[in-house]
């Protein structure tokens, strides 16, 4: 069930109005479980903004600022150490062989604003990413790319993880995958996130099926 404040929060976020966004959050939580407030208010609002971006209706900077504002607000009601934070699946996010970090930052903020905790590996080379994902026993690895060579490199990442016996699901996002519908399949990814909020859906699906096979 969605909170009746979703429209209001969406408007406040697009206007980058932290005060109004905070008031919406207080009204939605209203003494109830914080996670419920997050799921019924924050997630639908961010999802709506993500869809608007995909349709060209809002700008990436608005998606970014919305994620940042929500991340801060949710941290207040659901601190990082809170037992109510969602720690499954074990997730990590990284930019593969590139320095364009914004897409990763947006997805990271939106997942945290949705109550998830995840590792942020930053911008890393392939070998480092494989090692870290294996060491941390990552179950859902989100990989952000901006340029085609990095997008194609995901195929090597998927192979390396498989060869090491990992069942980690590699989810890709970024311009090359948005511009070409099936590129994510070519590189052997588990899925592609067209918008930042697709990551919430994928994490949620993993929880629902317990990380079972596709």
């Amino acid at each position: 069930m969605q909170s009746p404040h979703v429209d209001e929060l969406t408007d406040a976020l697009l206007a980058m109005d932290r005060v109004r966004a905070s008031e919406c959050m207080k009204s939605a939580v209203n003494g109830g479980p914080p996670l419920q407030g997050v799921e019924t208010l924050v997630v639908p609002a961010l999802d709506r903004i993500g869809e608007m971006w995909a349709e060209g209706g809002v700008a990436l900077s608005q998606v970014y600022m919305s994620g940042r504002i929500c991340e801060e607000l949710v941290d207040q009601i659901l601190p990082p150490a809170s037992p109510s934070r969602k720690r499954q699946p074990r997730m990590a996010i990284a930019v593969l062989e590139d320095q364009h970090l914004l897409g990763k930052r947006i997805v990271y903020a939106i997942l945290r604003a949705s109550g998830y905790e995840l590792e942020d590996y930053g911008a890393v080379e392939l070998d480092t990413l494989v090692t870290r994902a294996l060491d941390d026993d990552i179950e859902l690895l989100l990989v952000s790319t901006l340029m085609l060579p990095a997008a194609l490199r995901v195929a090597d990442l998927v192979s390396a993880l498989k060869e090491a016996g990992s069942d980690c699901r590699v989810v890709v996002g970024g311009a090359p995958f948005t511009l070409t519908e099936d590129l994510w399949k070519d590189v052997g990814a588990y899925a592609m996130g067209a918008t930042a909020t697709d990551a919430i859906e994928l994490a949620s699906a993993w929880r629902d099926d317990g990380g079972g096979q596709q």
Binding site: M16, Y64, M65, Q99, H100, L101, L102, R105
Partner: peptide
């Protein structure tokens, strides 16, 4: 500056 820092500066 990097994208994130630049957006922060812009706003």
């Amino acid at each position: 500056l990097g994208f994130e820092a630049y957006l922060d500066l812009l706003h």
